[in-house]
Design a protein around this nucleic acid. Structure first.
Lengths: 249, 249
DNA sequence: CAAGTGCAGGCTGTCAACAGTTTGCCGGGG
DNA sequence: CCCCGGCAAACTGTTGACAGCCTGCACTTG
């Protein structure tokens, strides 16, 4: 979407950012990115002072940001002890897959009844993009297109479900470094994508729902296969017992 | 830890509360209750100073609490302008029903495979409680038992889904004052409850899922019927344009 | 040598104050 | 009569500072 009836879709001016976003929201965004990128691994302790210093702000906005992240499930806090990047257990990861499957199925079903030709064409384009990426063996490109495909799917389902799906996907990143889509899986995964699109295009809500659910279930299966996912009986609730900065002398 | 590995389910001591909960979390809890009870209606502006004064704390904890509520969808904030209790449009309310249906179906399906006799008995007891409430024409009692029944259902599904369901239920309260369950609806609703329990007891995951979804879909239908739900084309994004405290003189 | 105790340091929880922005009101001009 | 610029109040955004708690080390004691 280059330009629109709304203001000329300008790349958000620096001035606009300052005028519309508070420091707390920016810090929240930054922390979320750091967590999802792995710069702050699961179990890591969040030192407010350190983060504030590093981001060049006061502790207030940092605390507000952490509260938000706590609500969204990326962080857990203990009074007088600190906040930690949440670690997701294997059981929780599997449940999250189930939830995403239900959400995806719902979105696909609705999309089967409401999809416009433009939407169908956009989905088809993403499908071809993934196919091309698979043939070129470009894993990261496939990964990006895959993300876009799912986003487009969920967007057709409704705004609330979309946000839920994104949040759950973020949480999934907290189960260790997730295994990226393996090459041999790309083909299987994309075949499922095609099935989803076909059902939507046919206007068959039930089939679309089943295909959407089956796709995420397949992802869950592939996830279980690659990641042995029986590390220890249960992951500890508070992984990093507060690593203290070592005194110099 | 007075005398046991797991202290005898003591009602949380005042000291424990002080020791484990921060002011921010308590304020968050309080604000949430005020919003859900209708004391702070949808669209209402949240004045930080006023709330802080009223709750006897500083603005810091209030701000942190509001950030959490913002993430959970109960509040929307605009920089330099304030925070408002979110108003949910009719379209959003309907989507939320769909999401809850999917979540409930998922939980029922899983429960059909894992339910213990104790869980089945507990669900049965709640069912009878609702029936008794219906015969006694005790709407509030029915309402409470209904809440418990659904909570028990979702509890069997998994902790993450349960929290999601609760959050969505809370959001639903923001669509005006929701109409309580009408007397004639109680019987229909409870029949659906019985169908759910029967399917779970039979261990039929597919039927349980369908029954769970159908029940929420029924709720959606009843919701649409009672609440005309076409108030105006779309609800304004920022309902209360900042009512300013009137000067005295 | 093991266990218990006291102390220092760091960090969180909370508060009060300052700066910037928005809002509503009032008066002057077209 | 309507519109517009200036003004003052209120409120939010942010910061810095203080108090209390927890942690870990060192020392003492049996």
């Amino acid at each position: 979407m280059e330009d629109d009836p709304t203001p000329p879709a300008s790349p958000p001016t620096a001035l606009d950012i300052v005028r519309t976003r508070s420091l707390a929201s920016l810090v929240s965004q930054e922390l979320e990115a750091m967590i999802l990128s792995g710069a702050l691994p699961a179990g890591e302790r969040l030192n407010e002072q350190q983060l504030a210093l590093r981001l060049g702000v006061s502790r207030g906005p940092v605390r507000e940001a952490v509260r938000g992240l706590e609500r969204s499930g990326l962080v857990v806090s203990v009074r007088n002890q600190g906040s930690y990047v949440r670690s997701v257990s294997a059981a929780e990861a599997l449940e999250i897959y189930d939830l995403r499957a239900a959400l995806t199925g719902l979105a696909c079903a609705r999309l089967a009844g409401t999809a416009t030709p433009a939407q169908l064409e956009a989905l088809g384009a993403l499908l071809r993009r993934m196919e091309a990426a698979w043939e070129a063996d470009a894993a990261t490109e496939y990964y990006a297109a895959n993300l876009d495909f799912h986003a487009a799917l969920l967007q057709g389902g409704g705004p609330r479900g979309q946000r839920l799906y994104e949040d759950l996907g973020n949480e999934l990143h907290l189960f260790r470094r997730r295994a990226l889509v393996e090459p041999e899986n790309m083909r299987e995964s994309n075949a499922e994508h095609a099935a989803i699109l076909a059902a939507i295009a046919a206007g068959d809500a039930l089939a679309a729902r089943a295909a959407g659910e089956a796709h995420i279930a397949g992802g869950k299966r592939r996830f279980q296969a690659t990641d042995a996912s029986q590390p220890s009986a249960r992951q500890q609730a508070l992984p990093a017992p507060r690593r203290r900065a070592r005194r110099l002398a």
